[in-house]
Amino acid sequence: MKLTQKDLLGIKDLSVEEINLILDTAESFIEVSTREIKKVPTLRGKTVINLFLEASTRTRTSFEIAGKRLSADTINISSSTSSIVKGETLIDTAKNLEAMNPDIIVIRHSAAGAPHILAKTVKQSVINAGDGAHEHPTQALLDLMTIRSKKGQIAGLQVAICGDIAHSRVARSNIYALTKMGASVTVAGPATMMPRYIEQMGVKACCKLEDAIVDADIIMMLRIQLERQTEHIFPSLREYSTYFGLNRKNITLAKDDVLIMHPGPVNRGIELAPDIADAPFSIILDQVTNGVAVRMALLYLLTGGN
């Protein structure tokens, strides 16, 4: 079994079979990270470049650890220390990296479509680690994996995604992923953060958080992305928190065994009350653990086989 494309640019391009292959492979990789010697020799002699042109703790560390646990050489480039500050274009940077013959390039960029340009420019496999407000496929895959391991399956579940839907690549990738896998998705957020025609993606849209989380099996809270907002789209953080924050009171509307997810970083006290973020039914840190396994699976599946 193999993935049909050279790159992983978005969930939109993946088939259900490919998603299942990635999740099954990732589940087998979980064990490697629990060993005393957390390393297998599989990608010995391979080079992975992590080109992170936008801030990241989790995703970058996760990709770096994933590469290292597979014995690949990993190199991290961030925008502040790269020649991008000297005015080099993305394509020139890509061609120069390609000339050093890596095997996989992981890219995060603030512009939607940057990984796609890179994938057309270089012969290496490109993994999208988040492009603007477009997609964040590895996040959606680790979310699917976390849901599947906690709930046994994804099909038939009621999932609410709440917050800044319009600016969220996590929401977009998860909507593609969850609907492909047969879950029912409801999104909620202030009208200014709700894309028009969102229903065309196969989801139900609500203007009130309470409406979206009724009978939910899973609630995914999104971070308010102050860095992507060009104008004031809500009056104040306090008001946002009052109407769209998840707390002890409104969570009772969901199913008794509801699980809370968040892609991180959490704005405590804004979208998530602190006691909810730390509650036993919060699986935010499981998401992080599974993230390493999903990225190991992708590096493994995208390397070699010529």
């Binding site: 079994m1 193999k2 292959l21 099954d24 492979t25 589940e27 087998s28 990789f29 064990e31 490697v32 699976a297 493994y300 599946l301 086989g305």
Partner: peptide
């Protein structure tokens, strides 16, 4: 074709 990875 990558062999399907099993659990250890």
């Amino acid at each position: 074709k990558k062999p399907l990875l099993g659990k250890t």
